[in-house]
Structures are given as structure tokens and as C-alpha cells.
Design a protein around this nucleic acid. Structure first.
Length: 316
DNA sequence: AATTCGGTCAACCGCTACTTA
DNA sequence: TTAAGTAGCGGTTGACCGAAT
């Protein structure tokens, strides 16, 4: 059972937009603002499908579009976000101001794929091309096999190696996590971005503005196996994160641990705990990986900084 | 000069999630 | 509760252009 068409196909133009059509669309949106795409064409005097108008505006006419070539920095950001998010172009675009999902998707397919191949990296898995294939995901373990479906609202968080907890001795004030300028992620699974768990701060201006359908980045992201070595040009120095937890006496974030958000009282699990307890309430994305050889977590903060934390040996 | 080929990217298509009646 | 409508997403297509032959 398919959807009904969003417009009458017989009376709509298709193909490339003319200058006049562009002007009509721009003028209409200038006056009335975005939205209500279905009724827009008629109101604006356009013989176009609403969908087509929306696409034209978002991908081409929007005044805040950056245009021009991608910078090396943007390349690396895209690669890193793709390694975490997969083909979630809209999520990636939300983190690259002035770039559209379509633009990034095209750029990925025409440039970055080739670039990664030339580095000997599989662009889908981000693993070396000649490495062993990724084992098939077990049921319940979200891998990348379903990444193009929105809102896979299954449970979040790491299901592998859940017993591998790590606690911080707050009293001793020992540094418990090591912040590293470059990361070598061996295996990563299960990114927590569930809105119910505050993985993604609703107070983030950027997030709310991009959270167009109410789901935004708050979908559970299946996280594929990773094995990459990347140098990331950080826009600024990562902050030191040796902080006391916001509540309670210990950090517990490797594996499917839970505790309560002291502000909201809501239960949060896994990577969400990590974000919160380390003071990254505005973080966009967190990934905790408890697998060998080096358990680690990654947080992408609101300023697009990547923060990587390795769990030190338990006896350190 | 004509043709072929490959790369690029704007636009379309089909699908799903969300909203509303 | 359910069905229909709407918005948005990701994959795909095809027109266009420049380089190579």
C-alpha cells in the first residue's frame, strides 16, 4: 500500500528550475516563511510539487548555504561523523553549518569514498580494506544493517561486554580517563542518542533548530564496528575532563549501566551517563565501547570537538 | 571536429515517521 | 484507535560538462 501522491502530477513542472521559479519561491518564503510545503506552490504561483519546492529551497536557495568546495577540515569531520553515524546524511549535515544533506551525500559518493579507498580504508566499514569481515550482528545488537531507517527505537547502549564496568575513585582524585589527541578506535558499538536519555541536550540551540521532525538526532544510532586511525584537526583544544561526577560517587559508563540524572531524575544509561557525569550535558553524541583491546568512549560536544577517553587498566 | 567516457550534482522517487482528524 | 495526510530522509537517476580519444 503506497502513499497517495503529494500533488497532482499532471499539472506540475519537473526537471530543472528556472530563474523565474526560483524568484517566486524566494519571494514567497521571504514573506511567509518556510513550511506548509503542500500549499506553498499554489500560493506562490508555482506549478511545482511541494516536495520539489522544499528540496529546491533547502538544497539550493536557502540564504545560509555555504557553497564552494569542502575544506580539508570538513572532509575529516564528514569522515568522522560518518564513522559514527553511517549514512545519516541529515545528521551529518546538521553538524556542518551551511552544508546540506544532499550536498554531503554527493560529496561522499564522489570524493570521500575515493579518498578513503586511496587510504586503504573501506568507506562503509571504516576498516582497512583487507581486514577480516565484520561478523554478522547478533539479534538485538544494533549494527549498521538498518541504518537508513529512521528512529530505530530499540534499546540503546552497549550490549557487549556489559560486565566491563569502570568506576572512578572520586576521593583519590585519580585521573581515571586519558584524553588523547588522536584516537585509535578498535571496535565500537551502540551509540546512545536516545532523546529519552538526554544523550542530546534539548537546550542546544543548534539541535532544536535542526530537530525538524521532533526526532532530530535523538534516534538510536547503530554503530558499526570500527577500526580506524584518524587524526582530527580539532577547532580548539579539547577540555580536560577530570571532573567530579555531578551526583553519586562513581562513574559507571562502560556497558549498559544506569543511574539517574540528578536534574531530571530520569534514568539514563550507558553513554548518556558518561556525557552527563563528565559535564557534557550539551554533547551531541556519545559512543562508549567496552571491547578489547582498549575500552574507550567518544563524545562529540556542541562545539564539534571530539573527546576521546580511554579506560585505563583497572589496576592503574 | 566529432564522439565517447566519466565525474558531478540537482532533482526525483519511494519509503518511513510523525501528526492530525 | 486508526487511517489519511504531511514532512523529511536516503537512494537513485539523468542532464550537463569537460577531458580524452
Amino acid at each position: 500500500m503506497g502513499r497517495s501522491p503529494c500533488c497532482e502530477k499532471e499539472h506540475t513542472n519537473k526537471g530543472a528550475w528556472t530563474k523565474e521559479e526560483d524568484e517566486r519561491l524566494i519571494n514567497y518564503i521571504k514573506v511567509h516563511g518556510e513550511g506548509c510545503w503542500r500549499s506553498l506552490p499554489k500560493a506562490a504561483g508555482l506549478l511545482r510539487c511541494g516536495k520539489s519546492c522544499r528540496l529546491r529551497w533547502i538544497n539550493y536557495l536557502r540564504p545560509d548555504l555555504k557553497r564552494g568546495n569542502f575544506t580539508e577540515e570538513e572532509d575529516e569531520l564528514i569522515i568522522n561523523f560518518h564513522s559514527l553515524l553511517g549514512n545519516k546524511w541529515s545528521l551529518i549535515a546538521a553538524r556542518l553549518p551551511g552544508r546540506t544533506d544532499n550536498e554531503i551525500k554527493n560529496y561522499w559518493n564522489t570524493h570521500i569514498k575515493r579518498k578513503l579507498y586511496s587510504r586503504g580504508i573501506d568507506p562503509q566499514t571504516h576498516r582497512p580494506l583487507n581486514s577480516a569481515p565484520v561478523p554478522a550482528p547478533s539479534p538485538g545488537n544494533n549494527n549498521n544493517n538498518n541504518s537508513n531507517k529512521r528512529n530505530n527505537n530499540t534499546s540503546t547502549n552497549t550490549k557487549t561486554d556489559c560486565s566491563n564496568k569502570f568506576e572512578m575513585n572520586v576521593q583519590s582524585n585519580r585521573p581515571v580517563m586519558q584524553l588523547v589527541p588522536e584516537f585509535i578506535m578498535s571496535t565500537g558499538r551502540s551509540i546512545g542518542t536516545d532523546k529519552n536519555h538526554n544523550y542530546h541536550s534539548p537546550s542546544s540551540a543548534e539541535d532544536s533548530s535542526n530537530n525538524t521532525s521532533g526526532s532530530g538526532v535523538t534516534t538510536e544510532e547503530a554503530h558499526q564496528e570500527l577500526n580506524l586511525e584518524l587524526s582530527i584537526g580539532l577547532p580548539q583544544q579539547p577540555r580536560i575532563i577530570n571532573q567530579k561526577p555531578a551526583a553519586g560517587g562513581s562513574y559507571q559508563f562502560f556497558g549498559a549501566n544506569t543511574n539517574n540524572n540528578p536534574s531530571t531524575g530520569a534514568a539514563q544509561t550507558g553513554a548518556a551517563c558518561l556525557c552527563y557525569n563528565l559535564g557534557f550535558q550539551n554533547s551531541k553524541l556519545a559512543c562508549s565501547c567496552s571491547s578489547n583491546p582498549m575500552p574507550m568512549s567518544t563524545i562529540i560536544t556542541a562545539d564539534n570537538n571530539l573527546h576521546r577517553f580511554y579506560r585505563p587498566p583497572l589496576d592503574s
